[in-house]
Design a protein around this nucleic acid. Structure first.
Lengths: 162, 162
DNA sequence: CGACTCGGTTGCTTGATGCAACCTTGTGTG
DNA sequence: CACACAAGGTTGCATCAAGCAACCGAGTCG
């Protein structure tokens, strides 16, 4: 994205995208949700350019979506945690993932599953548990490797993308 | 966005964002959902550069999210309609809008409301109707100007963005 | 005949992204 | 002690996409 803003747009979707619509941003949020909290972890997981990751993390902290906490000093090292505002992005991520799964499916099924921590049920595109019917939030759910992960990884190998 | 792809990512969110994560793309989809179907309408509504709009529309048609139909010939003029795949983006848009409304609110309330066509009830961040409780889909809902629109427009005037 | 509409395309400039190299503080190893 | 390595970045440079204005072709209106 060039500039991240959409001048003249009076729309909460546009306002949301000004913040989380930049390239990589939502993937960073998802990664932090899945437990990758450190710069290096995120960089290896996403293969994003380090300067871009750095810029995005700074922006996300400014916007109060992430919180930067030192987990040791000398040398100072940091971890990034989601704030409530960040956790509230969960329904949007769930909806996007469901859309991707439905309309560009992997041959062997979804590569990632989101399940209800309590009962293990899968989650639908609205973030409700398919087995117990509860409307869930970010803290109620957990991501797991899905049935399509293996074959997707194998295909990546074959293409040489490692 | 530079390239829209996220190489090495095995994740349905990444796959979804490869298509709809480019700048302007989701706003175009939202605009078409709200009834702006023609090139000129979209351009005026979004104030997006014409070449970019052209490129996005082409991509969205290729990806089977929009369908391009002639509404007259000589000269041929076209309209864009959402396919089922495009309509399925509705929950993601709803979630993003809800997030924007909650975390960057306009002083007088949301500028746009999404309501259930049947009963007029407002819609929550999961796309369920707050008044009748039904889980809705794109065709069940309609966007309306909300209470915060006036003041947001006034502020835009003041800034001179027209 | 000229002005205008619609739906684009073309060319140019600006600026974000990707990549590699480097930096700083500190720890582990020979 | 020297050297390598880790974490968490920053800097410089090349490239590619976005923003903008101008133009175009087919047709319509006055």
């Amino acid at each position: 994205m060039l500039r991240a803003d959409y001048p003249g747009q009076i729309c909460s979707i546009a306002k949301a995208l000004e913040v989380v619509g930049e390239r990589w941003t939502l993937l960073i949020v998802r990664d932090v949700m899945n437990g990758n909290r450190r710069f290096g972890e995120l960089q290896r997981s996403l293969r994003v350019a380090r300067n871009v990751l750095s810029a995005r993390l700074q922006r996300l902290v400014e916007e109060d979506i992430l919180e930067r906490r030192a987990y040791q000093s000398s040398p100072e090292r940091y971890e990034y945690f989601l704030t409530e505002k960040g956790l509230d992005l969960w329904p949007a991520l769930v909806a996007l993932q469901a859309w991707g799964d439905r309309h560009s499916p992997e041959p062997d099924g979804p590569p990632m599953l989101i399940v209800h921590k309590e009962c293990g049920g899968e989650i639908d595109d609205r973030g409700t548990c398919a087995s117990c019917g509860k409307v869930l939030h970010a803290r109620d759910a957990r991501a797991l490797p899905g049935p399509g992960l293996e074959s997707a990884l194998a295909e990546l190998e074959a293409v040489g993308a490692r």
